[in-house]
Design a protein around this nucleic acid. Structure first.
Length: 270
DNA sequence: CTGCACTGGGATGGAAGGTG
DNA sequence: CACCTTCCATCCCAGTGCAG
């Protein structure tokens, strides 16, 4: 079960319900559209990034708003990125390094800081008792201000987040929120910033990350993560990550997962 | 906040094609 | 050969704007 702790590769992933830190192989992704606010940090070579077929920009640091299609490349095999779940952060109160940004950002101090954090986590991360809330502390020096959602929408967000593989229809979510179907869809988009369906799609695709170090065939992973078959699985994963599922798994062989305490996907303990 | 009409595209699954 | 990805056709869920 526990993949060998390979010190030295520097390949590390820290996954919490609202945050992601990834330092590992990039592969050759095509256009990708992720549901979190992304912060790319160059490790050993500058990264290149572009939006919507526009010109490539070379940079040490780039910010991509949630649900914004983009392409990223790098001369080095390794890349580093932070992912902040869009519905969990107050966009207006983000640190200035990411607030309102889309594209390359010039902040050498932040780049240096993230690289140091990466070195620290890849050396010691597996030994530490990392809480989800220490993520912000490590990377930003303080907890990021959370977004305050309408409690009825918040409950639905939690429901999907806790069981991303379940197929909760918008109609059932509306009922559980005691809202009309119409009102629910409108309010959901207003609060979360993205339509219900794309949110659900993203959370499902994101849950794949919990499985990437496991060694089972993709058809099983597809079913475990809530996709009806490998066809839809392949298509959807490619849409989100810009990579084929098999490439993602192949590239994650030596990836050390840290901060992973409970398997996400099935029931709550107690 | 509800109800409604219109519509686009995500969801789906069979089958063919590709790859190691 | 097993497994994975792409292709394609179909369907209906959900996105949206608006009247009330």
């Amino acid at each position: 079960m526990a993949p060998g702790a390979r010190a030295g590769t520097g390949r590390v992933m820290w996954l919490t319900p609202e945050r992601l830190f990834y330092a590992g192989l990039l592969g050759s992704p095509s256009v990708r559209t992720m549901g979190g606010l992304l912060i790319y940090v160059a490790l050993r070579a500058p990264i290149r990034i572009r939006f919507d077929g526009g010109p490539w920009a070379s940079t040490e640091l780039a910010v991509v708003p949630a649900y914004m299609p983009h392409s990223v490349a790098c001369d080095d095999r390794m890349i580093c990125d932070l992912g902040l779940e869009a519905e969990s952060i107050d966009l207006a109160r983000l640190p200035s390094v990411i607030r309102g940004r889309a594209g390359p950002v010039d902040d050498a101090a932040f780049v240096r800081h993230v690289r140091q954090a990466h070195a620290y986590l890849s050396e010691r991360g597996r030994e530490l008792d990392l809480q989800a809330d220490s993520f912000d502390q490590i990377f930003f020096g303080h907890a990021l201000a959370p977004r305050r959602l309408d409690p009825r929408i918040e409950a639905v967000v939690q429901r999907i987040r806790n069981a991303p593989s379940a197929t909760a229809t918008a109609e059932s979510c509306a009922a559980s929120a005691h809202l009309s179907f119409s009102r629910f869809l409108h309010l959901f988009k207003e609060e979360v910033g993205t339509p219900f369906r794309s949110f659900r799609t993203w959370k499902r695709a994101r849950s794949l990350l919990h499985y990437v170090t496991q060694d089972s065939n993709l058809a099983h992973v597809a079913l475990d993560t809530g996709y009806p078959d490998s066809t839809h699985f392949s298509h959807s994963i490619r849409q989100v990550y810009g990579l084929k599922p098999s490439d993602i798994f192949a590239g994650s062989r030596k990836l050390a997962l840290i901060g992973e305490r409970v398997a996400v996907g099935d029931g709550m303990p107690g």
